[in-house]
Design a protein around this nucleic acid. Sequence first.
DNA 1: TTAAGTGCAAAATCTTTGCAAATGT
DNA 2: ACATTTGCAAAGATTTTGCACTTAA
Lengths: 146, 146
Amino acid sequence: MTMDGEVRRGDDLRHMLRSARLKVTPLRLDILSHLVEARRPLSHADIQSAMSDLDRVTLYRTLESFVGADIAHQVQGLDGVWRFCAHSKGDGGCPGNHPHFLCVSCGSMICLTDQNMPRVDVPEGHEVEGKQLVVYGKCPKCASRR
Amino acid sequence: MTMDGEVRRGDDLRHMLRSARLKVTPLRLDILSHLVEARRPLSHADIQSAMSDLDRVTLYRTLESFVGADIAHQVQGLDGVWRFCAHSKGDGGCPGNHPHFLCVSCGSMICLTDQNMPRVDVPEGHEVEGKQLVVYGKCPKCASRR
DNA sequence: TTAAGTGCAAAATCTTTGCAAATGT
DNA sequence: ACATTTGCAAAGATTTTGCACTTAA
């Protein structure tokens, strides 16, 4: 990775936070960076193990602020675990609303950004605000080693 | 409700449990009855408040046994709360796999049994075992009282 | 300067585990 | 009779709250 690339990336992260009216702090840059780099939804545990001495509570609040400021969204699979995905634009990013795939064996989740959310009809009077579609099964790794 | 209806229903419940190779106990009949009558997914809390002096742990295990024996399925919305729905056949039942609607305001959930699950393409090598689609928004009650 | 963010301790919840007593088949 | 199921107690895990200290703007 070039130095230019790193600088660019850092600036992007700062910009994401600033335009979301969140203060730019080292910790937020760090957490956001992890989410963006991952390019897939990460669980609390994923982030914690990646950033060893990170306070649990602070992580809860940071992720909450990201979701609230709409620079990330949260999804959960059948396992009840929340996973967070940054809304990075362009290049493999995770911009909008799309289905996710969850591996029930290893717990990894990926975004299916090339798929659209289906149209669903709801009974008269119901107001739809959004949808969440999780496809679950085995990822290639877990499917093969069996 | 006629006496005949009640007798029939009780027999149905017994039959559901028996054919799932679960022992027929008063408690299971009671919990299953609630799920079947509700005709929509009920949360832990829903069931507990409906059955005042019910041991939490026993409820966990009972619901687990229902799901394991495949006479109920579990879904969760964006709120991270598990909800359980009985697989009662026919007449408004909740037999298969289908989308659900969750009211983000009051937390009630309904089955959209008239809608099919969408087809979703996953990347090469991924094995799909199932899907979960939750549409969220406001139910008619919560949409109107605003 | 000051409103927002962070770290630590502690509380409140939620979920699981172990085991003895009760119960369906 | 015997394997299941249930209720209680207690452990474990997860999530939230409060508050003093620090930091970005």
